[in-house]
Simulated assay, not measured.
Amino acid sequence: MGILFYVVSARDAEAHVKWFCAYDVAGQPRGLENVLCLDFELLLGTAVFWLFAGCLIEPTALGEATIRALDRVTAGLRLRTEEMIRAVCAFFFISIWAVGGILLTPELKTTSTMVGVLQLAIAAGMLWRRTLPLSAAGMAVLFGIAVYYYGAFHLADYPIFLGVAAYLALVGLQKDLFGIRPLDVVRYAAAVTLMWASIEKWAYPEWSFPLLIEHAAITLGFDNEFYMRAAGMVEFTLAFALLWTPLIRRCASAVLAGMFISACFEFGKIDTIGHSAIIAVLFAIICDNKAYERDRRAAWLAPVGLCGALTVTLFAYYVGHAAIFKTSIL
């Protein structure tokens, strides 16, 4: 089972299904009695084991050697983290302007010409640090427009955009957020984004089935239902790891970045554009060698935290969906 967990993580193409397949956000999700099956429990047990093992390794000589190796490999990019994120954000907004008809992500459509003007203005604002807060405000406006037309539940898929906007605003103003660094703000947003997105793999696995038929190699021969459960668990565990200690979050970021980059080769231009910002954020996390006293945590807290985060996220998703769309939880 452990081998399977790593194989799926290596081959799981992180295409966002809403960009390529039919979906219905308001539709009835799989009931929790279907989601919380034996396969789910075995996969969770595997995730807990590997996360706990990683936490035990981190304070050892092997963990310290791994951190030093990461520091050496990422030293050059670490000095240019801000410039990298700004450049990729400029690329992202110019690209969606060039494609046309997109608010923030490929399934969020618009016919407004002013949205295109705002996207170009946001991209131009990336050229200078002092204009970053204006670009951040423009991103918040686009997010607000998307919420207005598509609803808050749909946009719960994309808090990463608010995280990137906050990062840009804080960097431009050269401030932190109540003692939280700009990079940590966007790291938390990335973790929440990916944990929430993983729930859809369990709640609506059928959305992805056409992709799995077309790109059958990524399933490694496993049943589509099981593959989606495994892919969701891998994504959720790695997303939670972004909230954890320095080595754990840097390694999780490296695996996630590899998954997203592999999806770009598998699914093409739209996937490359759509995931470019989160890939940049993941590389920034890989390069980040800052460690604080609050990062020290007992290893046994990681499994507790993972299970707690999973419970809270599942509860929020299903209860929120039922409250908004009047669907059943069970």
Rank of each mutant, 00 (worst) to 15 (best):
A10H: 13
A13Y: 06
E14S: 09
P29M: 04
P29K: 02
C37V: 03
L44W: 11
F52D: 03
G54V: 03
G54E: 01
I57D: 04
L62W: 08
E64N: 10
T66W: 02
L77V: 15
L79I: 13
E83A: 15
F93N: 06
I96E: 05
V99S: 11
E107L: 08
L108A: 12
K109F: 08
Q119I: 08
R129I: 13
R130F: 15
L132S: 01
Y148Q: 15
Y148G: 13
Y150D: 10
A152W: 15
L173C: 14
L177C: 07
A189V: 10
A203I: 03
I213G: 11
H215W: 05
L220N: 09
G221F: 04
N224D: 12
N224P: 13
E225N: 14
F226E: 06
Y227M: 04
A230T: 03
A231D: 06
P246E: 00
A254C: 06
L256M: 01
I261P: 07
I273T: 04
I273S: 04
S276N: 08
I278C: 05
I278G: 03
I286P: 01
C287Q: 01
N289D: 01
D295T: 02
A299L: 00
W300V: 12
A309C: 12
A316V: 14
A323P: 09
F325I: 08
